[in-house]
Design a protein around this nucleic acid. Sequence first.
DNA 1: ATGACGGAACATTTCCGA
Length: 260
Amino acid sequence: MPTIATWNVNSINARLSNVLEWLGAAKPDVVLLQEIKCQDAAFPREAIEDLGYQVATYGQKSYNGVAILSRWPILDVVRGLPGEPGDEQARYLEATVDGMRVASIYLPNGNPVGTEKFAYKLAWMERLRARAADLLESGAPLVLGGDYNVIPEPIDCHDPKAWEGDALFRPESRRAFRALLHLGLVDAFRALHPHEEHAYSFWDYQKGAFQLDHGIRIDHLLLSPAAADRLVACAIDKEPRRRPKASDHTPVVATLEDRP
DNA sequence: ATGACGGAACATTTCCGA
Protein backbone atom coordinates (compact mmCIF):
# COMPACT_ATOMS: atom_id res chain seq x y z
CA MET A 1 0.00 0.00 0.00
CA PRO A 2 1.34 3.43 -0.82
CA THR A 3 2.73 5.58 1.96
CA ILE A 4 3.06 9.34 1.88
CA ALA A 5 5.24 11.25 4.32
CA THR A 6 5.83 14.86 5.28
CA TRP A 7 9.12 16.02 6.81
CA ASN A 8 10.58 19.42 7.55
CA VAL A 9 14.27 18.59 7.19
CA ASN A 10 15.72 21.98 8.22
CA SER A 11 18.22 22.11 5.32
CA ILE A 12 18.40 19.19 2.88
CA ASN A 13 22.15 19.53 2.50
CA ALA A 14 22.85 19.57 6.23
CA ARG A 15 20.50 16.60 6.58
CA LEU A 16 21.39 14.56 3.51
CA SER A 17 22.85 11.49 5.18
CA ASN A 18 19.96 11.33 7.66
CA VAL A 19 17.43 11.72 4.87
CA LEU A 20 19.04 9.05 2.68
CA GLU A 21 19.15 6.61 5.59
CA TRP A 22 15.52 7.22 6.44
CA LEU A 23 14.39 6.84 2.83
CA GLY A 24 16.26 3.55 2.63
CA ALA A 25 14.80 2.25 5.89
CA ALA A 26 11.21 3.55 5.76
CA LYS A 27 10.85 3.29 1.99
CA PRO A 28 8.05 5.85 1.67
CA ASP A 29 6.48 6.13 -1.79
CA VAL A 30 5.90 9.88 -1.73
CA VAL A 31 7.71 12.40 0.47
CA LEU A 32 6.80 16.05 0.98
CA LEU A 33 9.85 17.98 2.19
CA GLN A 34 9.99 21.45 3.72
CA GLU A 35 12.78 23.88 4.59
CA ILE A 36 15.21 22.52 2.05
CA LYS A 37 17.00 25.90 2.48
CA CYS A 38 18.66 25.89 -0.93
CA GLN A 39 18.08 26.89 -4.51
CA ASP A 40 16.94 24.24 -6.98
CA ALA A 41 20.43 23.79 -8.45
CA ALA A 42 21.90 23.05 -5.00
CA PHE A 43 19.38 20.29 -4.20
CA PRO A 44 21.13 16.88 -3.95
CA ARG A 45 18.94 15.46 -6.69
CA GLU A 46 21.16 12.60 -7.89
CA ALA A 47 21.67 11.06 -4.46
CA ILE A 48 17.90 10.84 -4.02
CA GLU A 49 17.22 9.71 -7.58
CA ASP A 50 19.69 6.87 -6.98
CA LEU A 51 17.26 5.54 -4.36
CA GLY A 52 14.52 5.32 -6.98
CA TYR A 53 12.75 8.64 -6.51
CA GLN A 54 11.74 11.30 -8.94
CA VAL A 55 12.33 14.81 -7.61
CA ALA A 56 10.59 18.16 -7.94
CA THR A 57 11.85 21.19 -6.06
CA TYR A 58 10.84 24.76 -5.43
CA GLY A 59 13.78 26.30 -3.64
CA GLN A 60 15.22 29.66 -2.75
CA LYS A 61 18.45 30.83 -1.21
CA SER A 62 18.97 30.23 2.52
CA TYR A 63 15.36 30.06 3.61
CA ASN A 64 12.17 28.07 3.08
CA GLY A 65 12.05 25.81 0.03
CA VAL A 66 9.89 22.72 -0.55
CA ALA A 67 10.21 19.53 -2.55
CA ILE A 68 8.31 16.42 -3.61
CA LEU A 69 9.92 12.99 -3.93
CA SER A 70 7.97 10.21 -5.60
CA ARG A 71 8.40 6.67 -6.87
CA TRP A 72 5.95 7.60 -9.62
CA PRO A 73 6.19 10.36 -12.20
CA ILE A 74 5.57 13.88 -10.87
CA LEU A 75 3.08 15.55 -13.19
CA ASP A 76 1.50 18.97 -13.68
CA VAL A 77 3.70 20.78 -11.17
CA VAL A 78 2.54 24.10 -9.69
CA ARG A 79 5.24 26.19 -8.01
CA GLY A 80 4.00 28.65 -5.42
CA LEU A 81 0.63 29.10 -3.74
CA PRO A 82 -1.76 30.83 -6.15
CA GLY A 83 -3.34 34.13 -5.19
CA GLU A 84 -0.39 36.48 -4.68
CA PRO A 85 1.94 36.73 -7.69
CA GLY A 86 4.36 39.00 -5.79
CA ASP A 87 4.98 36.41 -3.05
CA GLU A 88 8.57 35.26 -3.55
CA GLN A 89 8.79 32.91 -0.56
CA ALA A 90 9.13 29.28 -1.71
CA ARG A 91 6.58 27.61 0.53
CA TYR A 92 4.25 25.62 -1.74
CA LEU A 93 4.72 22.94 -4.39
CA GLU A 94 1.83 20.98 -5.87
CA ALA A 95 1.78 18.07 -8.30
CA THR A 96 -0.01 14.88 -9.34
CA VAL A 97 1.50 11.52 -8.35
CA ASP A 98 -0.14 8.11 -8.63
CA GLY A 99 -3.48 9.68 -9.45
CA MET A 100 -3.41 11.90 -6.35
CA ARG A 101 -3.00 15.64 -6.19
CA VAL A 102 -0.44 16.42 -3.47
CA ALA A 103 1.14 19.57 -2.09
CA SER A 104 4.19 20.19 0.06
CA ILE A 105 3.39 23.10 2.37
CA TYR A 106 5.66 25.23 4.53
CA LEU A 107 3.22 27.55 6.21
CA PRO A 108 4.67 30.78 7.64
CA ASN A 109 5.58 30.78 11.32
CA GLY A 110 3.93 34.14 11.99
CA ASN A 111 5.90 35.28 15.02
CA PRO A 112 6.02 37.80 16.46
CA VAL A 113 2.26 38.29 16.71
CA GLY A 114 1.20 41.85 15.95
CA THR A 115 3.69 42.29 13.11
CA GLU A 116 3.41 41.94 9.35
CA LYS A 117 4.66 38.38 9.79
CA PHE A 118 1.50 37.33 11.60
CA ALA A 119 -0.66 39.11 9.02
CA TYR A 120 1.27 37.27 6.27
CA LYS A 121 0.61 33.95 8.00
CA LEU A 122 -3.13 34.55 8.22
CA ALA A 123 -3.33 35.83 4.63
CA TRP A 124 -1.34 32.80 3.47
CA MET A 125 -3.74 30.49 5.30
CA GLU A 126 -6.70 32.14 3.57
CA ARG A 127 -5.00 31.66 0.21
CA LEU A 128 -4.43 28.01 1.11
CA ARG A 129 -8.09 27.61 2.04
CA ALA A 130 -9.13 29.06 -1.32
CA ARG A 131 -6.70 26.78 -3.19
CA ALA A 132 -7.91 23.73 -1.25
CA ALA A 133 -11.52 24.59 -2.06
CA ASP A 134 -10.63 24.71 -5.76
CA LEU A 135 -8.77 21.41 -5.63
CA LEU A 136 -11.60 19.68 -3.77
CA GLU A 137 -14.04 20.43 -6.56
CA SER A 138 -12.67 17.64 -8.74
CA GLY A 139 -13.36 14.98 -6.11
CA ALA A 140 -9.99 13.36 -6.84
CA PRO A 141 -7.81 12.23 -3.92
CA LEU A 142 -5.92 15.17 -2.44
CA VAL A 143 -3.17 15.23 0.20
CA LEU A 144 -2.03 18.58 1.58
CA GLY A 145 0.97 17.79 3.74
CA GLY A 146 3.57 19.86 5.44
CA ASP A 147 4.75 22.01 8.29
CA TYR A 148 1.61 23.98 9.06
CA ASN A 149 3.15 25.86 11.98
CA VAL A 150 -0.19 25.42 13.76
CA ILE A 151 -0.81 23.55 17.01
CA PRO A 152 -4.44 22.55 16.38
CA GLU A 153 -5.54 21.73 19.94
CA PRO A 154 -4.17 21.77 23.50
CA ILE A 155 -3.58 18.00 23.26
CA ASP A 156 -1.04 18.76 20.53
CA CYS A 157 1.48 20.40 22.84
CA HIS A 158 3.22 19.55 26.08
CA ASP A 159 2.39 22.80 27.82
CA PRO A 160 -0.51 24.80 26.35
CA LYS A 161 0.12 27.66 28.76
CA ALA A 162 3.65 28.07 27.46
CA TRP A 163 2.30 28.47 23.92
CA GLU A 164 -0.47 30.91 24.81
CA GLY A 165 -0.11 33.98 22.63
CA ASP A 166 2.37 32.35 20.24
CA ALA A 167 1.55 32.57 16.53
CA LEU A 168 1.44 28.75 16.36
CA PHE A 169 -1.33 28.57 18.95
CA ARG A 170 -3.19 31.84 18.56
CA PRO A 171 -6.97 31.53 18.19
CA GLU A 172 -6.73 33.12 14.72
CA SER A 173 -4.23 30.50 13.54
CA ARG A 174 -6.23 27.63 15.00
CA ARG A 175 -9.45 28.98 13.52
CA ALA A 176 -7.84 29.22 10.08
CA PHE A 177 -6.65 25.62 10.44
CA ARG A 178 -10.17 24.52 11.39
CA ALA A 179 -11.48 26.35 8.32
CA LEU A 180 -9.41 23.93 6.24
CA LEU A 181 -10.95 20.98 8.08
CA HIS A 182 -14.41 22.47 7.56
CA LEU A 183 -13.89 22.19 3.81
CA GLY A 184 -13.93 18.44 4.33
CA LEU A 185 -10.22 17.83 4.85
CA VAL A 186 -9.24 15.24 7.45
CA ASP A 187 -6.21 15.48 9.79
CA ALA A 188 -4.92 11.98 9.10
CA PHE A 189 -3.07 11.45 12.36
CA ARG A 190 -5.79 12.78 14.64
CA ALA A 191 -8.54 10.94 12.76
CA LEU A 192 -6.92 7.60 13.61
CA HIS A 193 -5.57 8.57 17.05
CA PRO A 194 -8.19 10.91 18.48
CA HIS A 195 -7.01 10.83 22.09
CA GLU A 196 -3.29 10.11 21.79
CA GLU A 197 -1.18 12.47 23.85
CA HIS A 198 2.52 13.24 23.40
CA ALA A 199 2.14 12.71 19.67
CA TYR A 200 4.55 15.41 18.61
CA SER A 201 6.35 16.13 15.35
CA PHE A 202 8.66 18.95 16.50
CA TRP A 203 10.95 19.43 19.50
CA ASP A 204 13.09 22.51 19.92
CA TYR A 205 16.85 21.99 19.82
CA GLN A 206 17.12 23.96 23.05
CA LYS A 207 16.64 23.08 26.69
CA GLY A 208 16.70 19.34 26.08
CA ALA A 209 13.20 19.51 24.68
CA PHE A 210 13.37 16.15 22.91
CA GLN A 211 14.70 14.27 25.94
CA LEU A 212 11.98 15.86 28.08
CA ASP A 213 9.38 15.27 25.32
CA HIS A 214 8.47 18.94 25.36
CA GLY A 215 7.14 18.88 21.81
CA ILE A 216 4.36 20.10 19.59
CA ARG A 217 2.41 18.54 16.72
CA ILE A 218 2.58 20.99 13.82
CA ASP A 219 3.33 18.74 10.83
CA HIS A 220 0.09 17.52 9.31
CA LEU A 221 -1.29 15.45 6.46
CA LEU A 222 -4.71 16.77 5.46
CA LEU A 223 -6.71 14.38 3.28
CA SER A 224 -9.69 14.99 1.04
CA PRO A 225 -12.66 12.62 1.42
CA ALA A 226 -11.49 10.45 -1.48
CA ALA A 227 -8.04 10.11 0.12
CA ALA A 228 -9.37 9.74 3.68
CA ASP A 229 -11.58 6.86 2.56
CA ARG A 230 -8.36 4.97 1.76
CA LEU A 231 -6.54 5.89 5.00
CA VAL A 232 -5.49 2.81 6.97
CA ALA A 233 -2.63 4.09 9.14
CA CYS A 234 -0.85 7.25 10.19
CA ALA A 235 2.23 7.35 12.39
CA ILE A 236 4.88 9.75 13.60
CA ASP A 237 8.33 8.22 13.15
CA LYS A 238 10.48 9.54 15.98
CA GLU A 239 13.59 7.63 14.92
CA PRO A 240 15.10 10.38 12.74
CA ARG A 241 14.79 12.87 15.61
CA ARG A 242 16.96 10.65 17.83
CA ARG A 243 19.89 10.64 15.44
CA PRO A 244 22.97 12.87 15.52
CA LYS A 245 22.53 16.00 13.44
CA ALA A 246 18.75 15.56 13.48
CA SER A 247 16.23 17.98 12.09
CA ASP A 248 14.10 19.51 14.82
CA HIS A 249 11.08 17.97 13.04
CA THR A 250 10.41 14.27 12.45
CA PRO A 251 8.42 12.58 9.65
CA VAL A 252 4.68 11.91 9.72
CA VAL A 253 3.65 8.99 7.50
CA ALA A 254 0.21 7.99 6.22
CA THR A 255 -0.63 4.65 4.60
CA LEU A 256 -3.39 4.56 1.99
CA GLU A 257 -5.11 1.56 0.52
CA ASP A 258 -4.29 0.80 -3.08
CA ARG A 259 -6.29 2.63 -5.67
CA PRO A 260 -9.67 1.03 -6.28
C1' DA B 1 13.71 40.10 29.96
C1' DT B 2 17.07 36.98 27.95
C1' DG B 3 19.22 32.96 26.21
C1' DA B 4 19.43 28.44 25.15
C1' DC B 5 20.50 25.38 19.42
C1' DG B 6 21.25 25.02 14.83
C1' DG B 7 21.58 26.49 9.81
C1' DA B 8 23.01 29.74 5.98
C1' DA B 9 25.77 33.34 4.38
C1' DC B 10 27.91 39.52 1.52
C1' DA B 11 30.43 34.90 7.82
C1' DT B 12 34.31 35.37 13.74
C1' DT B 13 28.34 38.08 13.39
C1' DT B 14 23.68 38.50 11.94
C1' DC B 15 19.27 36.85 10.61
C1' DC B 16 15.89 33.39 11.10
C1' DG B 17 13.27 29.68 13.06
C1' DA B 18 9.19 27.57 16.59
